[in-house]
């Protein structure tokens, strides 16, 4: 698994990093920690190193906090692998430098410049991330530093799954909403990992419209319930009218992770106006996993 953690200097990013550390300790994922210094980028020119910017210190702190998670245990990210590598010094000049790499799994820390949401999406594509993790303010705002709609843009446009962490709360259950028959294997596996790591049960909600549910979606709901039962994950299933879905979700306990499957045939996509995902993500009180 490849995890991309995008963080800024705010407390919610530190909470999200804790979740990344927990995930990584169990999955031994390849992890990239990234930050974005926002502002216009002049292409074709060297970007000066932002010595005075607080973000590079914050990212260094995130690396240290991430590595502390192992507390003396054998870490797959421990730096044991010394070797010489050719690294660019400036345009047209390379230097053979002694570097130390992780022995088993990569932990990269990266700083990018430009539009925060677009840089996060760009990094996730280049690194072929399976999961993007980022924090945001809790409550109905769900924002990043400076009031930008970074989380909403990332969940709306990412190619991979996105975990949005709202606060430092234990996850006590997973609430997964199914409104279409196409479910990717990757998304099933992502739920497996979340349920295993947090040791929680799964509640599957099938969405119906005017009391009816499409046959193939209903069949898929049963199949998914069986899939998780076969894998010893406690699962319950219920049906909810799509028009009531938003209200149902709003009533759920704040420690339940809301998992939404997104796809081209999503009923929610047709029922709610454009960018409904961003709105749902904003309105839900706890963390949200958007799966693709």
């Amino acid at each position: 698994m490849r995890i991309l953690f995008a963080g800024d200097e705010q407390p919610y990013s530190a909470y999200a990093l804790k979740e990344v550390t927990r995930l990584a300790m169990n999955t031994w994922a390849e992890v990239t920690i990234m930050g974005v210094i926002t502002g216009p980028v002049s292409h074709g020119q060297e970007t000066p190193w932002p010595l005075e910017h607080p973000l590079h210190q914050v990212l260094h702190g995130y690396r240290e906090d991430f590595l502390k998670g192992w507390q003396g245990e054998d870490s797959p990210y421990a730096f044991k692998n010394w070797r010489y590598e050719w690294l660019p010094v400036k345009s047209g000049l390379w230097e053979e430098t002694l570097v130390c790499r992780s022995a088993m799994k990569d932990l990269k820390v990266r700083l990018r410049f430009g539009n925060a949401a677009q840089e996060i999406l760009g990094e996730s594509k280049e690194e072929e991330a399976d999961l993007i993790v980022l924090g945001c303010t809790k409550g109905g705002q769900c924002q990043w530093l400076g009031g930008q709609a970074v989380p909403q843009t990332v969940v709306n446009e990412a190619d991979c799954s996105v975990l949005l962490v709202k606060e430092d709360q234990p996850i006590t259950g997973i609430l997964a909403c199914l409104d279409q028959s196409y479910i990717s294997q990757d998304s099933l596996e992502m739920i497996n990992q979340m349920a295993t790591i947090h040791g929680v049960s799964l509640e599957l909600i099938g969405l119906s419209q005017e009391g009816a549910m499409k046959k193939d979606v209903y069949r898929r709901l049963i199949e998914i319930g069986d899939y998780y039962e076969d894998r010893d994950i406690k699962v319950t299933t219920r049906l909810t009218e799509i028009s009531e879905f938003e209200a149902v979700v709003a009533q759920e306990l704040r420690q339940q992770l809301l998992a939404l499957w997104l796809g081209k045939k999503s009923l929610l996509d047709r029922f709610f106006p454009r960018d409904w995902v961003g709105r749902f993500v904003s309105n839900y009180q706890a963390s949200v996993l958007v799966m693709r």
């Binding site: 698994m1 490849r2 072929e128 990757d186 998304s187 596996e189 497996n192 990992q193």
Partner: peptide
């Protein structure tokens, strides 16, 4: 040791 999901490149 690789956790699922993984992409084929990994």
């Amino acid at each position: 040791f690789i956790a699922k999901p993984f992409n084929l490149g990994e």
